[in-house]
Design a protein around this nucleic acid. Structure first.
Lengths: 353, 353
DNA sequence: CTGTTAGCGCTTTCAG
DNA sequence: CTGAAAGCGCTAACAG
């Protein structure tokens, strides 16, 4: 570990600081056994008012704070009251919202949450899972980056439950809470078709991510349902960021047979597409429906029609499931689906030229 | 704790699972003492290749994962390799970006980070600080909600360093990493003045937050510098969300003497202001410069001129400082300021009518 | 209702 | 270079 810090030469650390008070100190000061202190701390009823009082006073006087790690080390259930939340990137809106949902539920359970960003890197996923288990988290909530989760078998067997959110597990049976990706995509594309479009493009992110696959399936289902052909070059994916999405849209527009409507299957893809449309002054000519809402979508001109995911709900359901597992639920793994909502704002209702 | 989970009646939990391997198991399997295992785990050089090899093999075979909590319990420095990051709301862009910066630096130190949202609630700040110390975090990075941090003295003295980010400590001497709020605001308002505006309004968030105060000071400094008067009703704050900001702008526009330019001193305020301007079709008439950049600012029409904070840098400097404290730095607390940058995009260059 | 003893999994100290 | 014993701060399992 490269901890080359640049400070005064005095190495010291714990030596100078007055030791933190322990249960022993509290016991000594209040003249009871350490076990009685433990009882008071843990709210066990069978303590006389008088002793409870003396102990409480000593706790305040010494500013005693029980050491949670020490207690969970000895406890039968071994609970640490920590969970890990591993996701794409805490800085992106989807992950950030999920994170908040998780935090809120965790708080109800008196549990702190470690947040970790995977950056779509499977290796990083394994590293962070390992870090989490070294810290003996009570459970892991995972928006996976990797495509094989067999390695999690061991962790689960060792007593660390894992619940998946947004993307399903592969090579592993585990709980998952997902959006209705295919249905949402289908609805988006039907919406475009119903506004007269026959030339609808699909633009998606990393094709190995299951959400992309499901959304493409929804796109195709909608085309088939309306008897529309899927033209070559109309489906593009592996667009990891707005820039590549912007370029992809530019290429499409430059082609012999440009689309009149775009279904952008992910947040950042939507943003990149809009960028190009704006640059070319086509934002009022070409229809766009995006998958997943994003901040400011209703301040752009035209306002952006999207199929919104209920991210807070996905997060909340997933942590709830996790806490059920932590509490000892051993029922077979379940997959839950959270429905999407079409939000009509303008960009998706532009008719074809 | 309301943990009413809805699962099968079997309460069980730890009982059924095969116990996790411990150092003792590894020692037994490899026929060495537990201490030697400890040495191998901690990379102590003085172990013969042969023993190291046997131990390593046993570790793999048993899938042994050292218990970090147990080790830090006994360790002299007591480090838990966890820090807490307490901020406004993990879901908002500023906090989310800060969070990412902190995570990246923490990773270099092999440290996990607890993220917690305070929602501008001082009570919640104290609760989460306490939760963090119960978990014996190595340090706390705080974007404070409260206005008196005297209570942190105890924690610091007990050995938990605290570093402030974005907002300074009050009633406590502690490290802080802040933006150059006054200077940035001054630059924004001078920019508007230099485009011919004399009627410039200030719109800010919660006035008790120090950043708001500093930005107002910058606004006033700029007015004074250009010899412009501060008209009554031109300064409005305590705008906690876009909606109230939108209403405040509407009221100003309806007044007898509406401004020709707005300096919006915070993210959400900027967004609310733009909403109202768009609704009234005034977004190309009235100039806006916002403090703090936001996603999509360059996709709106007109694109939004802002004074951007270097949030990643604020976060990175703050955690670095925290890790220095954790490493034992006892030098006097320092305040660092991170400069802002004016990003010219269009909305701030609209001339007065 | 209260206390004693042992020991969670690991590192420290101190002997070989 | 290796190991035995003690103990971090706390709770479990028994006594009384």
């Amino acid at each position: 570990m490269p901890v080359s810090v640049n400070h005064s030469d005095v190495p010291r650390a714990a030596s100078e600081q007055p030791r933190r008070a322990t249960m022993r100190d509290v016991a000594a000061l209040s003249g009871v056994s350490i076990k009685t202190v433990s009882r008071v701390i843990n709210g066990v009823a069978s303590v006389s008012d008088e002793l409870r009082d003396r102990v409480t006073r000593a706790i305040v006087q010494l500013d005693f704070q029980p050491n949670l790690a020490a207690s969970s080390l000895r406890r039968t259930d071994g609970a640490t009251r920590q969970i890990a939340l591993l996701l794409e990137n805490v800085a992106n809106p989807f992950s950030a919202t999920l994170s908040r949902a998780v935090e809120d539920v965790a708080r109800e359970h008196g549990t702190l949450v470690f947040a970790g960003s995977l950056d779509e890197d499977p290796r990083r996923e394994m590293e962070l899972v390992r870090a989490a288990t070294l810290h003996r988290v009570d459970g892991i909530l995972l928006v996976p980056a990797g495509r094989d989760h067999g390695y999690l078998h061991r962790e689960i067997r060792n007593g660390t439950p894992v619940v998946f959110a947004d993307r399903p597990p592969r090579g592993l049976a585990a709980d998952a809470v997902l959006a209705t990706n295919a249905e949402g995509a289908r609805e988006a594309v039907l919406h475009l078709a119903d506004h007269g479009h026959t030339e609808i493009a699909f633009l998606g992110d990393e094709h190995l991510i299951s959400t992309a696959t499901e959304r493409l399936a929804g796109y195709r289902a909608a085309l088939a349902e309306r008897g529309l052909p899927e033209r070559p070059g109309r489906v593009v994916w592996d667009l990891p960021d707005p820039e590549s999405a912007a370029r992809a849209v530019a290429r499409m527009l430059d082609s012999a047979d440009p689309p009149t409507a775009l279904f952008t299957a992910q947040n950042l893809v939507t943003i990149g597409a809009i960028q190009t449309l704006q640059e070319r002054g086509l934002h009022r000519e070409i229809a766009v429906v995006g998958f997943d809402d994003f901040p400011m979508a209703d301040l752009l001109m035209p306002r952006v029609t999207v199929v919104a995911q209920d991210v807070m709900r996905i997060g909340a359901l997933a942590v709830r499931r996790l806490f059920e597992r932590i509490a000892g639920d051993t029922s077979p793994p379940r997959e839950e689906r959270v429905p999407t909502t079409l939000i009509v704002r303008g960009s998706g209702e532009i008719p074809p030229r």
